[in-house]
Every structure is written in structure tokens, then in C-alpha cells.
């Protein structure tokens, strides 16, 4: 391609850059708007629009959003909900990734009768709409006595997540040469020893992909959060909707922007530092 590109007129180079930068601006607008609003006062936003340069820095928006803002009659800001999300996402991500690694290893390398069927069904779980599982989950949670708890959400996300984590790990482990395992088996290594000594040391790339995928998805998940928890038990995505509803009469765009920004920060940071792995997960999770 290089030859052909060098022949391009400089003008068309400029057009290409202009289009690319224009799109970059389009993608960034909502983020910039949120960042700017998060340090603007309500009067400032109210008298102009949500798009504007701060006249004075209202850094107190962050403090209010974090600690004193009222959501559904509770005036503790979004911090309790952030903690809920963290308490949900950390165990759910770790457990589902570990199980996925074991499952993937079982299916890909420790072949057993019916492995293809099992894998096929687990893959279906990736596509199944969440709406198909709402009623059964409600009953299961009730029977387990977990209704309206963070534990319930951890439980759900682990079990749902297994489909994705198994898919990722299985597709990665399939590439491990079987001879490597044969040699280990002849040496008398069993299921666990092979996993621990051979498979796991080869796994960091796929485990990073899986952890990032699970973290982002569970953090951003909304339907289960809003269906299975209420009030003080909600994760932050569900609480944000309650927040936008509760301020419908007297909108506080500044504080809300700060809240939205805080809620988006964990996944944004993960994306900035692990973008390559994020994309890999996205591709693997979508195309299969």
C-alpha cells in the first residue's frame, strides 16, 4: 500500500485527517461535556446549557456526588452504591474466571465423552437474552434466601459469566499442543498437576482478557441490578437511574455529572490500561 499512498495528493491526506479528527471529537463530546459539567455550578448550567466552559470551578460537586447527594431518600451520595458494585464485581470476576479456566481446560485438553455438547450448550449461554432468565433467577434467589442482596448478584454473575469465561479459555487452550500433555501424563501428572504446572503458566494473556471482560461487563450490568436489588443494596448502575429519576423535578446536572463520572471511572481506567486486552475480549465474546 505504501507506494500508492505516497502518490496520494497532500490535499486528500488533509481530508482524511480532518474526517478522523472530526469523528474523534464526536466520540469525545459526551465525555468532555460530563467532565466540564462536573465542575460547573447549577446556576451556570441552568443559565446556559449543558455544553459550556465552567465560569467558576465547583469542585464541591464531587464531594456532594460521593457523600451527601440524595438518592431515593438516602442522602449518602453514590459512595455506598460504589462499594456495592466493588463488593459485587471483585468476587464475581475472580470466581467466574477461575471456574472458566478450569472448565476451558477440561473441555479443551482433558477431553471427555460429550465434551462438544457441553461446550455447545455453554456457548448458547453467551447469546441467551437476560430476559429469559429473570423469572427463574427470582425463584432461585428466593429459595436460597438471597433476595435483595449483593451476594445474589455475585452468584448470578458467576454463573452467567461461566459461559463467557469458559468460551474464552477453551478457545485459548485448544491451541496448546496435546503432546505437551501426553508427556506430562506419562510422567504421572494428574488433572490438577497438569493444570497447575503446564496450563496455568501459559494462561496469563487469556486470564487478563477474561478478567477485564468480566470486570467491565459486571460493573456495567444494569438489568439484574435493577431487578434483583432495591434501595441500599443496589449496584451503582442501577442507583444512577434512580438518581436521574429522583432529580427529575429539580435537576442538578453538575452533581449528576460528577456522579456519572465517578461511576464510569473504574471501567474507563481498566480500558485505558488494558485496551488491547479489552478489544480482544470484545472480539472473542462477539464473534465467538
Amino acid at each position: 500500500m505504501a507506494e500508492a499512498i505516497r502518490r496520494q495528493a497532500p490535499l486528500s491526506r488533509w481530508v482524511i485527517y480532518a474526517v478522523l479528527v472530526a469523528f474523534a471529537a464526536f466520540y469525545l463530546v459526551p465525555l468532555i461535556v460530563t467532565v466540564l459539567n462536573s465542575v460547573r455550578t447549577e446556576q451556570d448550567i441552568g443559565s446556559t446549557s449543558v455544553v459550556g466552559w465552567p465560569r467558576e470551578l465547583a469542585l464541591s460537586n464531587f464531594g456532594k456526588a460521593w457523600g451527601t447527594y440524595c438518592i431515593a431518600q438516602r442522602c449518602e451520595g453514590i459512595s455506598p452504591f460504589m462499594w456495592n458494585s466493588i463488593l459485587m464485581v471483585v468476587p464475581a470476576t475472580i470466581i467466574s474466571t477461575l471456574i472458566g479456566a478450569l472448565n476451558g481446560y477440561s473441555i479443551a485438553l482433558w477431553r471427555f465423552r460429550g465434551d462438544n455438547w457441553v461446550f455447545g450448550i455453554i456457548t448458547l449461554g453467551v447469546f441467551l437474552p437476560e430476559q429469559m432468565k429473570l423469572v427463574p433467577w427470582t425463584l432461585v434467589l428466593r429459595d436460597l434466601g438471597l433476595s435483595n442482596t449483593i451476594t445474589a448478584l455475585v452468584f448470578i454473575h458467576v454463573i452467567q459469566g461461566i459461559s463467557f469465561t469458559t468460551l474464552f479459555c477453551r478457545n485459548y487452550y485448544v491451541a496448546i499442543p496435546p503432546d505437551l500433555l501426553k508427556a506430562a501424563k506419562i510422567d504421572g501428572a494428574g488433572y490438577f498437576r497438569i493444570f497447575w504446572r503446564i496450563v496455568l503458566p501459559l494462561s496469563p494473556p487469556i486470564l487478563i482478557v477474561t478478567v477485564i471482560w468480566q470486570f467491565t461487563h459486571i460493573w456495567n450490568e444494569f438489568l439484574y441490578g435493577v431487578t434483583f436489588t432495591t434501595g441500599a443494596q443496589q449496584p451503582v448502575t442501577a442507583a444512577l437511574i434512580a438518581l436521574s429519576v429522583s432529580v427529575a423535578e429539580a435537576p442538578q446536572y453538575g452533581v449528576q455529572s460528577a456522579a456519572v463520572l465517578i461511576a464510569a471511572l473504574p471501567t474507563l481506567l481498566v480500558y485505558l490500561f488494558g485496551g488491547k486486552y479489552f478489544l480482544r475480549g470484545l472480539t472473542a465474546g462477539a464473534v465467538k
Binding site: 459526551p30 467491565t216 464510569a264 471501567t267 479489552f278
Partner: peptide
Amino acid sequence: YPMAVSFVV
């Protein structure tokens, strides 16, 4: 980056 942020946000 929009894919990394919650639809709610």
C-alpha cells in the same frame, strides 16, 4: 472507549 462505559452512563 464508548464500549467500555456503561450504557446507563
